[in-house]
Design a protein around this nucleic acid. Structure first.
Lengths: 249, 249
DNA sequence: GGAATTCCTGCAAAAAAACGCAGAAGTTCG
DNA sequence: CGAACTTCTGCGTTTTTTTGCAGGAATTCC
């Protein structure tokens, strides 16, 4: 087994279970504990895991337990949220994914807005629930603790029954060539279903994530109707996307 | 269990209950009292908890604590939760309703318990999600903002597909003559479905709600297997229920 | 004031990590 | 082709961390 391969496997395990034990890893992969330790050290140096005595933890582990609400690049996300909200009008059926950008959207919804929001993201649902005039439909299924979203075939089947007016996707990576990509297989399946079930697909992405690629493909640019970033629509970074036929806001 | 994991669990407990006892923590996590003490010391050094003789307190302790009534009934609910948890073993499928008593149950689940919890209650789901070893299945549908639970035909249909080992019902009113009653039509429909889908039905009720009646009937006493209250099982108040064939704990 | 509980200190055993080293495998470059 | 070089991996040893335990001190509760 190659080193990269091994580290990818470790990272996958960490993201799956929120923790790994060096001892169990070395029997699973059949290498010495030193090798595992060195791998964990490297992954920790790259900021991909948190190394602790006896193994390693995922970052989301900390999020789950310590509710340190330091939202990452919140200002940009608020700009994006404002632009996105302008697209929602009374009576609409809105489908949303999860992610911090979506959370910012949820928090910024004007109180007089009357619409129906559909999502499987627990944090997003919590926000929608607090809103006085919004109907909330929750997509049920098994909960992925890492992404705090319901995943699985039931959830996908349910989404496919919906025909939403608009769909907001929080984006992990977008690229002119590869379209939207992500790193969690189950989340990708959900996003695909959401795209299929919506008349209009809106992609929310902070500039930082533009022109980046993740392993799993969600959809091509041709399936996106609108791309929202915190940048001005005529920013040169966005030109390739406008050229590909995506409306940029 | 890793050290960080353990400390995260402790911190979570402190934030939930506003206090922890070293003695109860060490039986829950199954480590020596010294380890707990050292963990509390470290967390206190980091300013995350306030260490006191016998355990630790959360920072918000001062603000919330002196609402004697709330705390009083919380203690009762903790007793109920403890009794209820004794019924859950590894590998079980557990169906739960919502309500504050269920929340107390959710908060008190021992970290090493491995089980699958199914619920449509958003606050309960949030708690289950924080637990390291519990699989969470969310029942989806429209959300009732008042009861913070998913309601509707989809939710009921989904529950009926399940065959759970045990079902915990938070109770609004229970009476020897009328059985379990409630005041929200939609919640009642859900509870009925839950009772149908479970091999064993356990009813959690604080003494205050015993011998009270609400407008809508959930089920008769004959459909309940077990009644848990904070009282001793031989308390005279509970005699009518024992006589009706309900096992009282 | 006395019993019970809880806390602290030092210690020891076990586990894990760090370190240095030495083959093995692959790379570079003449 | 082959020698020098780098990278990767496993092994033995040393060091650190973690944890539980014992005894005595401190605290709490009745």
């Amino acid at each position: 087994m190659l080193k990269k391969e091994r580290q990818a496997f470790i990272l996958h395990q960490v993201n799956l279970h929120n923790k790994v034990l060096s001892s169990s890893l070395c029997t699973e992969i059949n290498v010495s504990e030193d090798t595992i330790r060195r791998d964990l050290q490297e992954l920790a140096d790259e900021g991909k895991v948190i190394k602790v005595h006896g193994g390693a933890l995922s970052h989301s582990f900390n999020q789950v337990y310590f509710s340190t609400n330091g939202v990452y690049s919140q200002n940009q996300k608020q700009i994006i949220a404002k632009k996105a909200i302008a697209l929602i009008s009374n009576g609409m059926f809105v489908l949303t994914s999860g992610g911090t950008t979506i959370m910012e959207l949820a928090r910024s919804l004007p109180p007089q807005l009357k619409a129906t929001f559909i999502s499987g993201s627990i944090p997003a649902i919590l926000e929608y629930m607090h809103h006085p005039n919004i109907e909330v439909i929750l997509i049920g299924d098994k909960i992925s603790k890492t992404s705090k979203i319901t995943v699985g075939s039931e959830a996908i089947a349910k989404i496919k029954q919906v025909k939403a007016d608009i769909c907001f996707l929080g984006t992990n990576a977008i690229d002119a060539e590869h379209g939207i990509t992500d790193n969690d297989w189950e989340v990708v399946q959900l996003k695909k279903a959401m795209i299929e079930s919506s008349k209009m697909v809106v992609c929310l992405s902070i500039a930082e994530k533009i022109n980046s690629v993740q392993p799993i493909k969600v959809c091509g640019l041709d399936e996106i109707d609108l791309l929202i970033t915190e940048l001005a629509p005529d920013d040169p970074v966005l030109k390739p996307y406008a050229d590909a036929g995506v409306k940029v806001v």
